[in-house]
Design a protein around this nucleic acid. Structure first.
Lengths: 328, 328
DNA sequence: CATGTGTATTGACAAATGACAATTACGGTT
DNA sequence: AACCGTAATTGTCATTTGTCAATACACATG
């Protein structure tokens, strides 16, 4: 009576033991609850267990992805702010989330970004991934609601030696893991000490192959960094404080995927820029679907620069930032 | 204060008025509840309405498909019964739903079938649709959780003049409507009085075109009918009681898409069969993905016949029927 | 200007739910 | 056979949620 153990060695399982064995009980509880709309008590009666057990089963079902709640991304793009942003910046998709606490902003944006990305993903996609707190939040919360096969996730900029908390490698591998994709980490530092060394490294067959994959991404996910004193770039280790100050002196207000932008989104190049390994801004523009996730008042000028120059095709933000962008 | 009216003629909407305008409030309530996991009271506070209103918003969000609960069809296929059925009948997918009341069986099967179909649907699909109570239940409950474009739904058998409650036309048009697909109704009766007339009709350019589309379906959805006294075929009007009795006398135990099968799934042909307009059993086998939805003890022999002969690639049933099939 | 009609909203109550500590069952080990 | 540690299960209670009749509101009509 009740739920059979998941040990799998009981007599009625003939032959091969399958890898991901679902407990029938969990699946059924989920079905009866979410599809048939029975109450937990009714299900408990039917399965001969206590209601509390059903609560646990349902939790498990949600955690294991047997059931998931999908919020139609089309609907998110139909709020008034989202539509205004779409027309103002010529974006093909915008998702705006409601207000919440400031501390949880990147978490909440990550959730939204994850849903937007998950919705777009198709068989055979090659998904480029940048890095940063927000990108990591997306990677951390993404979950596919339908089976997709043959995905590749590729790191689009070299690996940094600094802050490992939201490194390119971590963002890439976490995301690929969550969506069961092939993972390609760029086997190169983000910045090299000379252009010559960079050129030599990129000439290596391994890297040539990897960079080729970077350039063939059909989607890319990135955040926007500002250049304030506590900003992500300043702790990321991709450039020294002096180098960053130099970029600022030359008009930079934003960073995307390691590249610096001025107030109108034009590239701010230079020696340091030339020594960086990763997708360039012009290459970025070649990617058909470019999802930018960013929000927060401190990033406003940086976001404006990014959007104005058309680096994104899809934009995920919060309502406060969205309204501020429209007010400008 | 509160929710703005959806009249759409207020001043802040410049230019074109978009067709499906979502109320921001509904969208936000949905987001805050399902994504941010706030309680209804918290959301009510934030949006300055009563909690009861939030309940209504959330209901509306579910009804309008802004949020939907998806049950991973892969998981449904991993219950022990589903896997046993897959191997016994060589099916590539099986979904088994738990027990419930007998009256609601076709509703519940319809829900499951709808989810299985919705999960499979891809851009550009041509979906053949048979008819019957179960097929109608699928059509009635299907909802896409992601945007899919360029779908065609095509009626795979002629239109009957009998029972209009679950006619081929209704099944087809309802389904196509639900998934925003192009709808192709076969402009011909299900049965003609002579073979010659049928041949003449099928020679018509319009029908030639339509039949060509039928044959190019890449998915097909059908139910299974038995031949008992109260069965669907007997009220459908596709054949007279005498004709049906004749089929039975010649060994028929099942009907799928208007075609009669013997106990092992072999076609039971004859004059009446020759006069029918619609996909044939051999043509059916050419369709890559064939979803069969059926359950109930009275249909057991009919289902066995259908599955044994390999007419289905995917099968949706209830646990009672599933276990009975395994016990045979 | 009163009146009707349909829809959106609310408050109050009953039901359903989630959290958690206590309890029980189980597999492996002396 | 007794023991132990882990994991599943349960009872209880505070919180959250759904329902429903009553009310407010906008808009059209006589």
């Amino acid at each position: 009576m009740g739920r059979e153990k998941s040990s799998g060695k009981s007599g009625d399982e003939i032959g091969v033991s399958l890898p991901t064995e679902f407990d029938d009980a969990v699946m059924w509880a989920a079905w009866l609850y979410y599809a048939d709309q029975l109450t937990q008590s009714e299900i408990a009666k039917q399965l001969n267990v206590s209601r509390a057990t059903i609560v646990n089963y349902l939790q498990e079902a949600r955690e294991r992805g047997i059931v998931s709640v999908v919020i139609n991304p089309k609907a998110g793009g139909r709020t008034s702010v989202a539509r205004a942003l779409m027309s103002k910046y010529g974006l093909s998709g915008v998702f705006v989330i409601p207000n919440g606490t400031d501390e949880s902003l990147s978490q909440r944006l990550g959730d939204a970004g994850a849903r937007v990305l998950a919705d777009q993903i198709e068989d055979g996609d090659v998904i480029g991934v940048a890095w940063g707190r927000t990108v990591l939040a997306v990677a951390d919360q993404i979950a596919l609601t339908r089976p997709v096969s043959n995905l590749t996730v590729v790191q689009v900029s070299g690996s940094s030696t600094g802050e490992p908390e939201f490194s390119p490698e971590l963002c890439t591998s976490l995301l690929s893991n969550r969506i069961h994709a092939r993972c390609v980490n760029l086997l190169a530092p983000a910045v090299l000490s000379t252009r010559e060394l960079k050129a030599a490294l990129l000439a290596e067959p391994v890297l040539k192959k990897q960079m080729h994959l970077v350039h063939s991404s059909n989607r890319i996910l990135f955040g926007v960094g500002d250049l304030g004193p506590r900003s992500t770039v300043r702790v990321s280790g991709i450039a020294s404080q002096e180098e960053i100050d130099d970029y600022v002196a030359r008009g930079a207000v934003a960073v995307i995927i390691g590249r610096f932008l001025d107030a109108h989104g034009a590239a701010v190049g230079g020696d340091h820029d030339d020594r960086m390994v990763g997708i360039t801004l012009n290459e970025l523009r070649q990617v058909p679907s470019r999802i930018c996730v960013a929000g927060g008042s401190s990033k406003l000028p940086a976001i404006v620069a990014t959007l104005e120059a058309g680096y994104a095709t899809h934009f995920v933000t919060d309502i406060a930032t969205g309204e501020a962008l429209l007010a400008l």
